[in-house]
Design a protein around this nucleic acid. Structure first.
Lengths: 341, 341
DNA sequence: CTGAAAGCGCTTACAG
DNA sequence: CTGAAAGCGCTTACAG
């Protein structure tokens, strides 16, 4: 692990000045092809490695983007982060990624660390909750930053918000269940008071109201185990319920599991179930799970494009962006599945 | 987005020299408490942000660790990456993370980018396949790097290898199935010739041979859809098979799904199924899935400790480290589950 | 087309 | 306990 060669070493080996080496590094047109070749050969021979940090010190713009995610163990967020990271990588940016485990204090800490590391911008899928969240630190540093998937900071002028159109999604799902003949449709999962829950509930409530049906909301921590437990509770306490719109796919997949456990049939003739997000597992469960497709991979790519346009082209994103969603109908809610695209 | 204040601005505001500010930044004991307070106050007032890149230019050691993972959409790898990242974060290091989608060329590219970004070390869960993999570039840069979960580069002196003890895992699982009375045990999934498949197969084959039983290996791309399809194939082509040891949990969960689809019972009296890795979903499926527990979260934390000891303490890891695994028995393979810890 | 010089924001001996 | 100076590896005008 000796000292890495620098442009000075390269310059010496190639017999030019270090400025010339720098220009070659930047593919400047004002270096003779011959000289360029000599410099490149010297770099190869010495095993030269470009030091981006040093370069950025002078020119600014490290090519690092910070990704701060509330729960990376949830496949929905994982898929978002991965597609975003890969899109950034394609454009020559690297992603510094951190999981905050739904903890605002941890979020504030990792945001601070990322700012020190010189990220050019931040994408935050924030943890709920108050106190120090890190957004103030971002504002002080004057960095471009977006909040995605959830809005927790009201300053959308500073921190533009982007997320799939959740209310439209639950509207589509509820309409579908009504059309299939369900009359007692429960909403399962989601913690009340949180933005995403409220939005997903809104479309459900509005649609039921329009159809003259009564809502039944059964909130809770939205994981598989909760969904699984809910199968029994639903059967025992609310036997009249003939359909469940779940807060997310994890709850829905758990509910599916729980129905298998208690021997309750799922789908037409049994309990109709619809999830939300359309993560990959939905297509592989039995029965396959209907879900509101958020195209999270496409969303991640779009966010990458947006943040890069902001960083590189100074194009400020709109304060709020809510891309459309659609409904994928599978056997868990209907006899006639929609065609998969 | 004006120019951020530097230590010079802070020094001016606090009426000291910039060296003093630097010393305060490093919590040096040789600065009077009074002066320290004045400097801190000035930093606060100016909204000073420490520029780690600049500092590292001089002192070297950016506090960045690169994480290069073959398939981050697979929960097993996700969990590994997340627990590693969080452990690093706790120790003041940030993780640059990239998914390589099982593509060696992409892997080589992201490794190159990370080296330029000045990572202090790399953790690589490598993609299989030849050509340029990026390991040569790491060697040229003289960076500490470990290969984890899979070994693809033979130079374990340069790139120490760490992974759960796969052969022991399949041995445990196979012994368990035999003890439960299974006599026709299939191994499902895994692509032949790959290191992990071969190791997981080895324990299976050895144990069967010891018991005088014949192996049946049904390899394939190890996702849920493959497992699901395999349920039908198993029932039609190999009706005598009474147990399946799966390459990983994804295959096993798919197989579970497929058995539900074709109406074949799973567990004692039906097809006994054991997965591998023990991802979180195992406990939530129906029936719950037995699996070889690799404690991937603990493994990620251990790898974090190892790489930091290498980077900070110059402790080179052993060429090969194979932490022990155990078997979690659930209803998919036995009437009497093991106690969950 | 190429070179000499200053500077990016910090740290590190070295004086005092 | 604090300051002046040099240097980390690069880029950026500015000369030539």
């Amino acid at each position: 692990m000796e000292r890495r060669p620098t442009i000075i070493d390269v310059a010496r080996a190639a017999g030019v000045s270090k400025s010339t080496v720098s220009l070659v590094l930047q593919n400047s047109a004002s270096v003779r092809a011959e000289t360029r070749a000599a410099v490149r050969a010297a770099m190869e021979a010495l095993g030269y490695v470009y030091n981006r940090a040093a370069a950025n010190l002078r020119s600014s713009g490290a090519g690092l983007i910070g990704l701060v995610i509330n729960d990376l163990r949830n496949p929905f967020f994982t898929e978002f982060a991965i597609s975003l990271q890969m899109a950034l990588s394609e454009r020559g940016f690297a992603a510094v990624l951190a999981n905050t485990d739904e903890t605002p204090a941890l979020q504030a800490q990792v945001i601070g660390a990322m700012i020190e590391h010189g990220v050019s911008a931040l994408i935050v899928s924030p943890a709920y909750g108050g106190g120090e969240t890190g957004f103030d630190a971002i504002a002080r540093a004057g960095l471009p930053a977006m909040q995605v998937l959830r809005r927790v900071d009201g300053r959308t002028d500073l921190f533009p918000f982007a997320a799939p159109d959740y209310p439209a999604g639950s509207r589509l799902a509820t309409e579908h269940l009504i059309a299939e003949g369900a009359r007692n449709i429960a909403f399962v999962g989601g913690l009340e008071g949180r933005m995403v829950t409220e939005e997903r509930l809104a479309g459900y409530r509005a649609t039921l109201a329009g159809a003259g049906l009564a809502p039944l909301v059964l909130p809770g921590r939205s994981g598989r185990s909760m969904g699984r437990a809910m199968a029994r509770r639903l059967a025992e306490d609310h036997p009249e319920v003939d359909a469940a719109l779940c807060f997310n796919d994890q709850v829905a997949l758990g509910l599916l599991s729980g129905c298998a456990e208690i021997g309750r049939p799922v789908g037409p003739g049994g309990l109709r179930i619809v999830g939300f997000d359309d993560i990959e597992d939905c297509a592989q469960s039995w029965p396959p799970l209907s879900s509101v497709r958020c195209d999270i991979a496409g969303f991640g790519q779009a966010v990458a494009a947006t943040i890069l346009a902001w960083v590189e082209g100074d194009v400020t994103p709109p304060a709020e962006d809510r891309p459309a969603v659609d409904l994928v109908i599978r056997a868990s809610s209907a006899a006639q599945p929609s065609k998969e695209r």
